[in-house]
Simulated scan of single mutants.
Amino acid sequence: MESVQNRRAIAVERIVWWSVQASLLIGIYYMYSQNNGTKVFMGFLTIGVMVAIALVQRRFQYPLPSIFASIVYGFVFFSVVVGTFGGGYKINHFDDFLHIFSGIWIGYASWLIFRRLIRNGGAANLPNSFIALYMICFSLASAAVWELMEFAGDKLFSFTAQGRDPDDTMIDMIMGLIGGSISAFVILKLRDRGKGKSELE
């Protein structure tokens, strides 16, 4: 049963990957027609990152759970295709939605990393309060790193990710924190029901 579920998850991952790649190429063509070289470069950079993830998945027999990879691809679609190419960032609170979304999958990533580091069932002996603190801190730290990357992109490649309002950076980090907290809450609820390993790995 697990092998069938894994095959289905991998099939979904591949469909999502190809769909996002196709939408990125369409967006790149549109940005090229608008003579927007910065966004064209951003699009090709995003494609390169997604290709790298796919190669790692194939080469090392899917070290990332397919559900997690599909969530990441979905985030790429909303942030780059809808947000950057489609003008989604002009919609009120669209950016807040993305940062909550990113906080959720980063929180999920922190749980996966945690389980890889704490092997032989060691995670089961740790209290929920410690795991929640770890996941929330991980999400907040990742949000800070993301803001640093946005700052670097704006300065080095003339992106416009952060704008000029310092409040935007702080709100983005708060949204990431909220997303990480949501992820921690859901995972710990499932963990208490004894489903953590079977449903979240």
Rank of each mutant, 00 (worst) to 15 (best):
G74C: 09
F185M: 10
L126Q: 02
R119T: 06
G107N: 00
F97Q: 03
F159D: 05
S23V: 03
K155E: 15
I67R: 08
R116E: 05
D167H: 15
Y32F: 11
M42D: 10
K90P: 03
G196F: 05
S3C: 08
A123W: 04
F151K: 11
S19A: 10
E199F: 08
L140D: 07
T38G: 08
R58L: 13
R8E: 08
V82L: 14
G83C: 06
K195A: 07
S70I: 07
C137I: 12
I15R: 02
L126T: 04
S142R: 09
V80R: 01
T84R: 06
F138Y: 13
L98S: 00
I171R: 15
A161W: 14
V56H: 10
S142Q: 12
I26V: 13
F68Q: 03
E2I: 04
L190A: 03
F85I: 12
L156D: 12
G86T: 08
Y29R: 10
K155W: 15
F101M: 04
D172A: 07
K197T: 06
G37P: 10
G122T: 00
L45S: 15
D96K: 09
F75V: 06
R8I: 09
R58K: 14
I171N: 10
Y29E: 10
K197H: 04
A109S: 06
W17G: 01
K189L: 08
Q21R: 09
G107C: 00
M50S: 10
A141E: 10
V16S: 02
K90F: 09
I67Q: 10
P65D: 05
L45D: 13
G86Y: 06
A69Y: 07
M50C: 09
G179S: 06
Q61T: 12
E147R: 13
E201T: 06
G196S: 06
D167C: 11
S158C: 13
L126C: 04
I178S: 04
M170C: 11
T38P: 05
S70E: 05
I67K: 10
R193C: 05
D167M: 15
K39D: 14
N128T: 08
I15A: 06
Q61V: 12
V186H: 02
S66I: 07
L133F: 15
R58S: 13
F41T: 15
I104G: 01
I118C: 02
V82P: 05
N120I: 02
S198D: 07
S110N: 00
L156Q: 14
P65I: 03
S158N: 15
G163F: 14
L188D: 02
W111K: 00
A184K: 01
D168E: 14
L25Q: 07
V76R: 00
G180F: 03
M31H: 13
V76W: 02
F77S: 09
S70G: 11
Q162R: 15
D95W: 01
I71M: 11
G194H: 00
L45I: 12
N92S: 12
I178G: 04
S19M: 08
G48N: 09
K197C: 01
Q61F: 11
L98T: 02
I26T: 10
